[in-house]
Simulated scan of single mutants.
Amino acid sequence: MINLPNVQSTASNSLSDCQTAASSFRTTINYTASNITGTTGMNATCSASGIVCPGQTINGVCIWQRKLSAVCRNASGVIKIRIQTNGLPPRCASVPMGSFAELNVDFEVNFNPDVSINSLNSNLNTVSSLSQTLCTLTSASTAPSASGFVNYGTTGLTTATGVSVDGVMIFTPDSTNNIDPFFPPAGGTAETVDSCLAHCQAAGIYHYHIASGCQVNPPTGNITSCAANSSCISNIATYSISSFLSYQTKTVIGIAKDGHVIYGPYLSSGTQVTTGFDVCNGMFYDSIGNYAYFATSTYPYLVGCFGPGNYPLFGPTCTTNGVSSYNMSSYASSFWNSSTTTSMSVRISLDTGLILVFISAFISLY
């Protein structure tokens, strides 16, 4: 391999940048609490008929309090964001069986840390390594050390990749069987979700595996299951993207455990993100060097691993809705090119480890 200089780009990670992202969260308090579950939240109500209630049922009405805080601070020049949530949504949820628990999620992380395409956090250069990483429920249990992640809460976060702006957890893109929960390979069984594309796991943690317009625009009144919604059940990935038709711009939908922002499926230009992302579903999306995760209609949908990652010419084996290859965004390509200091134009195929060198020089033959 050729050792390229590690040229770091400078991301938008000032205190005001952090506060702008934090303002997208539907917070119930504007400070960091000693214990988020002990704060006074905001009531949400639903008909208790046919659903598991995460709060109290009074006269046939399920009532609970959602609690959420997103606070930024300057820690000796490093901007950090602290997220606290009890995990309960600001809207109805269709949880027909099992448990639906209040959580105590509380973590702090460096906000939008500088990263470089020449220094990858995830370099998955074989089908086996790609599939093993993306197709493992606990693959995102540990955030990169440079993110400064600290967990203060009592709720375990081994299967979580981040928190949505509505306070609901975002999980890795895998079912308990370590396959795509919506488009499993042959022999797998798809999991059920409600029409906001969320559900509870065995311990009662309500969570997303895929983006939903409910994150930014919570519906009122009771909601159905996905199975009872013809558009949802016909193709959940298409339904996911269609739920953002009123948000066709770069829209914050969450924060990942590595401190990078999670956006909806559109760029500021109104273009849907269908390419340019790496194996982790992250993308360098501007000339400054900002890196973020974007909602896509293909697996892993939100955050598959912690990036930056590489761009192999193959996809994972645990889904029938993955991409067959990955491509750099134009910005990623420009950052990579800028690291070449010789007179050669070098392109590295990170997925196979092969290096193709094209010498752009005139050679005199005698």
Rank of each mutant, 00 (worst) to 15 (best):
H260G: 11
F314C: 06
V261N: 01
G315F: 12
P312E: 02
T271C: 03
P300L: 08
G309P: 01
F284H: 05
V261R: 03
P312F: 09
T298H: 09
Y285R: 08
Y326P: 05
C305Y: 00
S287Y: 08
Y326A: 00
S269K: 04
L313D: 14
S325Y: 15
V303A: 08
F294M: 10
M283G: 05
F284P: 00
M283I: 05
G309F: 01
V303G: 01
S324K: 08
G307A: 09
T319S: 15
K257M: 14
G276N: 06
A256P: 05
T320I: 07
S268C: 01
M328E: 15
F284W: 05
N310F: 09
I262C: 12
Y301S: 06
I288P: 00
P312H: 08
S330N: 13
G282E: 07
Y285V: 10
A256H: 06
P316G: 09
D278Q: 08
C305G: 15
G259M: 10
T319P: 10
G270D: 12
Y285C: 07
A292L: 02
G307I: 05
T317D: 12
Y293D: 03
V279P: 00
Y263T: 01
G289H: 14
Y301I: 09
N290L: 10
A256G: 15
F306T: 04
D286M: 12
G322E: 09
M328N: 10
T317Q: 15
Y263N: 00
N281R: 11
T275Q: 13
A295C: 06
Y301G: 05
N310G: 13
F314N: 03
Y326T: 06
G304Q: 11
A256C: 05
D278R: 02
V261A: 03
S325R: 12
Y291D: 02
P316K: 14
T274G: 14
Y311G: 09
V323R: 11
T317N: 15
G254C: 08
V279S: 08
N290G: 14
G289C: 14
G259K: 04
N321W: 09
D258K: 03
C280P: 01
Y285K: 03
S269P: 07
T298A: 07
G309Q: 10
A295K: 04
D278I: 09
V261H: 02
A292H: 00
G259F: 05
L302W: 00
A256R: 01
I255E: 03
S268I: 03
P308W: 07
Y301V: 10
P316T: 14
Y291Q: 09
T275N: 13
T317C: 07
H260R: 12
N290D: 15
V252D: 06
A292V: 00
T320Y: 00
V303W: 02
A295D: 04
L313M: 13
P316N: 14
N321M: 12
P300G: 08
T275S: 15
T298L: 11
K257N: 12
T271I: 12
P300W: 05
D286K: 03
T320Q: 08
G304Y: 11
N321Q: 15
T275D: 11
V252S: 03
Y326K: 05
S287K: 11
G276H: 06
A256V: 04
T298G: 00
G322T: 13
S325M: 05
S324L: 12
T320D: 01
I288V: 11
L302I: 11
L313K: 10
G259C: 12
V323T: 14
N321I: 13
V261L: 14
S324P: 00
Y285E: 12
T274Y: 05
T275K: 03
S324V: 13
